[in-house]
Design a binder for these strands. Structure first.
Lengths: 372, 372
DNA sequence: ACAAGGATGACAAGCGATTGCCAAAAATTG
DNA sequence: CAATTTTTGGCAATCGCTTGTCATCCTTGT
């Protein structure tokens, strides 16, 4: 992959002249440590080792460590001490095998590189870790097939699933929800509990904002055809623009990536609209770039409203007016909905639907409609 | 979290008037399906079910599915057919228990929300999936302690580790490397195999670029104190600026976030430098914002060079000149280095060091030095 | 046609935990 | 102080799969 020796040595020289020597020295170290490890037979301490050291049965160790109260206070301390001394960590594999639960939740997102999902991932990650669960991140690459596949393949290895912006059909989703506990994000009309982001209401806010700036010809720049939120946003857009007697147009579908922005911008300009409501910020940012290239000024000639308020929306040029919502929190709520289903004993009232509020964040990409 | 009923219903109305009904209907569906499932005793088909259906022993099923060639061609087909019919998925738990390998690799990054790591994550994810491994993402929140902790806690559940920009001390790292297979990214002087991004050479390119633009007073804006790459970049900066007899200054350390950009910008301006080489793009973008607020023009009054070429570097204002490198590829290479260690049979020559090339991407944040 | 050898598949012993069941010990009660 | 209840901790059976060992069967060579 990289041309090696020559480049390497010059680089090393610059970085750390003693690297190679250092490496060798430490190599030797390892050797020694590895040997030390091999003295003890099975490398990792098992529950048996702990039991032996503490002078109890393995079952007692297991209970001491998982069922507080089931074991005498003082015995437990002795066990914990032994466990600590051996640096014992229970094998999640073995634990999962016998208990049937993996303490793992899989989070499926259409595209890891989309900053929108970053926030969701961060939210789920936090919440899951707090509950002692492990998160399994899966990138489904915008493909319903991969999504269904992952759902199948991992049904044994995850206790539950969180589907962000699922691309599955309603039937697939219903079926999947019957097979395993799952919570969706931004996908409401399904059997599964859902966290939705209230973008329709955001659309209203955006439209009012644009109307107040004097815009009358507004274009809806659509996202992926299979996206449920896209459909809902379009629906809200239609209803609201009709009420307000605005002239509308629609272009798309476009992939939710900055690279699709060029085509989207050109199409939008072609409609003659003076303002666009764009499926998401990624696309909107791409449009901004293209409009700038074409010499179309934002917001003087064209106003742009994005959606999601992702990383970057505040520092692009011009900064993007966008429909913001607590995405990270959506992730957290999704997790707690899922966990309350997985552990009905703890979980309080497990809701079937959570609606995350949205608000319009006005920045510099929207302005008064151009005079005609 | 959200005010419920009222808002909910209004939202539902807008979205899907039949949602509730729909929900109930599907609820019933599930009930039925769940019942169906309960008819078969153990819910998920096991290897035994497959063996029975195919008329062979479980061991044969196991071999047919994992050791191609060990089982007769025709028997295998029969088994595969049976497995497919039952929709059998082996339990990774059980498999791991007996085989001792989890087919899982943990990737530790200091901050999931940093776009730099996004690319790494994407790279590792791809490569791991291709090799049939599962990726476990861990956010260590820039903390050496959490990192060490995760390394301990997960040593049973992961076959190997990839540490991106590890915050561990050399001793900790050496110890960790002795305990389990691990590959580091951007952390060379350690026992473990490493993928480094050749930023020192990028620093040279950046300096040459700035010099060619007439800059003589250059400021190094430092990142986290515990960051190895930061140290190396500073080192390269020092060496190269001395050779070129430039006037230098250094500010920092700053957290690698846009929010730290304000302080960084103010400090940099205070040094009187006309150009900055900034630890990373995140910080640089933050500085850009602050400089703009303060009316300091970029690049007319001050040139800025970032590092990493992250998402956003191309559309911030002005677009950022930055030291780019194939980050995603770095992730991929790290994975293949790790896997070649985990599976010595396949793996070819397992390198101990891979150096990723860098190049300067010049955009609009650098320009001629201001006249004095 | 028979012995040697390789291919094939079954048996059974784990892997490291959990957990139902039960007996011994301790605490409570009358 | 005996009887009863409650704790406490051990035994052993699983969980679902892998793998070492070994018997069987089918090829071959002679």
């Amino acid at each position: 992959m990289t041309s090696d020796c020559q480049k390497l040595s010059s680089v090393l020289q610059l970085w750390d002249k003693s690297l190679v020597v250092e490496g060798l020295r430490q190599m030797r170290n390892t050797q020694t440590m590895a040997e030390l490890q091999l003295q003890s037979p099975g490398k990792q301490p098992t529950i048996r080792d702990v039991a032996e050291l503490a002078g109890v049965a393995t079952s007692t160790v297991s209970r001491a460590l998982t069922k507080p109260g089931r074991v005498n206070h003082v015995t437990r301390e002795r066990i914990e001490e032994a466990a600590a001394k051996l640096n014992y960590i229970p094998s999640s594999q073995a634990r999962g095998l016998s208990s049937g639960r993996t303490q793992t939740v899989a989070v499926l997102v259409p595209d890891i590189t989309n900053p929108f999902y970053f926030d969701i991932i961060r939210g789920t990650q936090h919440q899951l870790k707090a509950a002692g669960y492990t998160q399994l991140l899966v990138d489904t690459e915008e493909s319903a097939e991969m999504e269904a596949d992952a759902l199948q393949k991992m049904r044994r290895s995850a206790d539950g699933f969180i589907l962000a912006a699922s691309r599955l059909t309603d039937e697939q989703l219903t079926e999947a929800a019957a097979q395993q506990p799952l919570v969706t994000i931004n996908r409401a009309p399904a059997i599964a509990p859902t966290v939705v982001i209230d973008t329709p209401s955001a659309i209203i806010q955006a439209l009012e904002h644009l109307v107040s700036l004097g815009h009358t010809r507004i274009c809806f720049v659509g996202g992926p055809a299979t996206s449920w939120s896209n459909a809902k946003r379009w629906q809200a857009f239609q209803v609201e623009t009709k009420e307000r007697e605005l002239t509308t147009s629609r272009v798309g579908p476009f992939a939710p990536k900055t690279t699709s922005g060029a085509a989207a911008a050109d199409a939008a300009v072609h409609t003659g609209a003076t303002a666009c409501i764009v499926f998401n910020d990624l696309l909107a940012i791409g449009m901004l770039q293209r409009l700038r290239e074409r010499g179309i000024r934002v917001p003087e000639d064209m106003s742009i409203v994005g959606c999601d308020d992702i990383f970057g929306a505040d520092f692009c040029n011009p900064p993007l007016t966008t429909m913001a919502s607590p995405i990270e929190q959506a992730g957290r709520v999704a997790v707690s909905m899922l966990l309350s289903r997985l552990n009905p004993q703890y979980g309080g009232t497990s809701r079937r639907l959570a609606v995350m509020p949205t608000h319009l964040t006005v920045r510099a990409s929207t302005g008064p409609a151009p005079e005609r």
